[in-house]
Simulated assay, not measured.
Amino acid sequence: MSGSVFYLDQQLASTTTLLLQFRQRRKNTTYVSGAFTGVSLPGYGDSFKQALATGKVVFRLELKTGIRFRIARWTTRHHRLHASCDVGVGPDGLMLSTYKDRRCSMYFS
């Protein structure tokens, strides 16, 4: 699984190894955590500071991973899953409650 973080459509950070290969059991949730390496905010520093002063900065998190489905004894070929989520962060660096439990847009390729 790989991921990227964007602010105002500029990529700030990315990672290529958020999660190693695993098998997801039925009706199960897997939590993902990891570290992103990033860059500074050239040209957006003032906008970022203004957003932070209002108490909310919105980032876009994009995740990509390979996925296969198993139905009974039949396993599909590998598909590419793309997910994109808006994440609002407060001045304390924590996700704002209004952004928790939201559905992200997803598509397969």
Rank of each mutant, 00 (worst) to 15 (best):
V32T: 10
H78K: 12
S105M: 09
S47P: 02
L19E: 11
S105N: 11
R68K: 14
Y99N: 03
M1I: 12
S105R: 11
R73D: 15
R70F: 00
T76K: 00
V57I: 01
H79E: 11
V87N: 04
Q11T: 13
G34R: 06
F69Q: 07
T98C: 07
D92A: 05
S2V: 05
W74L: 12
I71T: 13
V89E: 06
T76N: 00
T16S: 14
T17E: 11
D92G: 04
C85Y: 08
A72N: 10
Y31S: 11
S2L: 14
M106D: 04
D9A: 09
A13N: 10
F59D: 05
D9L: 11
A35D: 04
D46P: 04
G43A: 09
G93N: 06
V57F: 06
K56T: 07
S33T: 14
I67E: 08
T75R: 04
E62L: 04
G34N: 07
T54R: 08
L18N: 09
F59N: 02
T17Y: 04
K49E: 10
L63Y: 05
T65H: 12
G66W: 08
L41E: 06
T75I: 15
F69G: 05
M106I: 15
F22G: 05
E62D: 10
D46F: 08
Y107M: 10
M95L: 07
C104V: 04
R103E: 14
L20G: 15
S14K: 13
R60G: 04
G66T: 12
G38V: 07
K49T: 13
T17M: 08
F69H: 10
T37Q: 07
M1V: 11
Y44C: 08
F22N: 08
T16D: 13
A53W: 00
T29Y: 07
A51H: 05
S97I: 10
T98R: 03
L18V: 05
T17A: 09
M1W: 07
L63V: 09
K49A: 15
N28T: 09
V87A: 04
Y7R: 02
G38W: 06
T65D: 09
R25P: 09
R25A: 15
R25T: 15
R25M: 11
L18W: 08
Y31Q: 13
L41V: 05
V39L: 11
S40V: 07
S109F: 00
P91C: 01
T17Q: 11
G38D: 06
G93Q: 02
G93P: 06
E62W: 01
L81P: 02
T98S: 10
I67P: 03
K64N: 11
S47R: 09
T17N: 14
G88Q: 04
R103W: 07
Y44T: 15
S84L: 11
G43C: 02
S2A: 13
T54P: 02
S33F: 07
R68S: 12
T29H: 10
V5E: 02
F108T: 14
Y7C: 06
P42C: 01
D92E: 14
S105K: 09
P91H: 05
A51C: 08
A83N: 00
Q50L: 12
K56G: 03
I71A: 04
T65G: 13
K100Y: 07
